[in-house]
Amino acid sequence: MEGGPLLQDWWKEVSKDFIPYVNITSQIPGKPDQGMLAQKGGRGFPYCIFMDSTGKVLKEARPSDKDSFTAAMKPITLLTSMRALVAKSGNGSKGKANRQNLALIEAVFDPKERQFKQLNKFAKKKSLNEEIRTMYLGMVETWPIRKEVEKANKALESAGRDQSRAEAINEGRNAAMYALFRRKMDVESPTAPYFDEFWMGIAEHSVRIEDKKNGLAAIEKMEKKYADNGRALDHFGKVRDKLEMLK
């Protein structure tokens, strides 16, 4: 990364929209911010995240290319600009709209199912920000997927190095993705959250239950997304081979 994207001109250009912070773990006692990687949810290097002004982690985002990075940054920019607007706005109708916009975009980052009913009402209002509305509705649409993925991630954390338990958890998540797919759930855009977990889960579960047609369709989605990533394609190729062998 340091020899690639972080040297590009597009990187310099987009950096004007955020405050860059580098955390270098040096193992030198007394240096500031040492050990922060784990505090912020990182498990290895390099680790790239967006944070708000209190240091709260908002999203993981690797700067691999301009388009995907600016797409990942978009909701962050909307959140921070809406927070600033709300801080300045009064109690009038504009202030109310700003607060409702903020509630919707906050929910994109930190969804609470019990709030969906009220937020769905806000999302119907034409006076609200169109981009925020689209992001909120996208989040609600993929909520069942997110819930399953987060449940599995939490279980994986507590499984630690227990390999057989981890495998069972992964299989459970894949089966859940497949079940959601059969219930007509879709994650269309490759840049959408949980795209990988969804389609890879379907492909791997399809191998298990011998559903060649849907498995191949799912692995094709992953191959298209990672067309330039040889290592990823090697892995997908192995899953594809297993699917091709099915009747």
Binding site: E2, L6, S15, D17, F18, I19, P20, Y21, V22, N23, I24, T25, S26, Q27, M36, L37, K40, G42, F45, P46, Y47, C48, I49, F50, M51, D52, S53, T54, G55, L58, A61, M73, I76, T77, L79, T80, S81, R83, A84
Partner: peptide
């Protein structure tokens, strides 16, 4: 970074790496 983020309203991008 947090101080500047508060002043400007911009988010923080954190890059975690190592030197050892």
């Amino acid at each position: 970074a947090m101080k500047k983020s508060k002043e400007t309203g911009k988010p923080i991008f954190g890059y975690f790496t190592r030197s050892y």
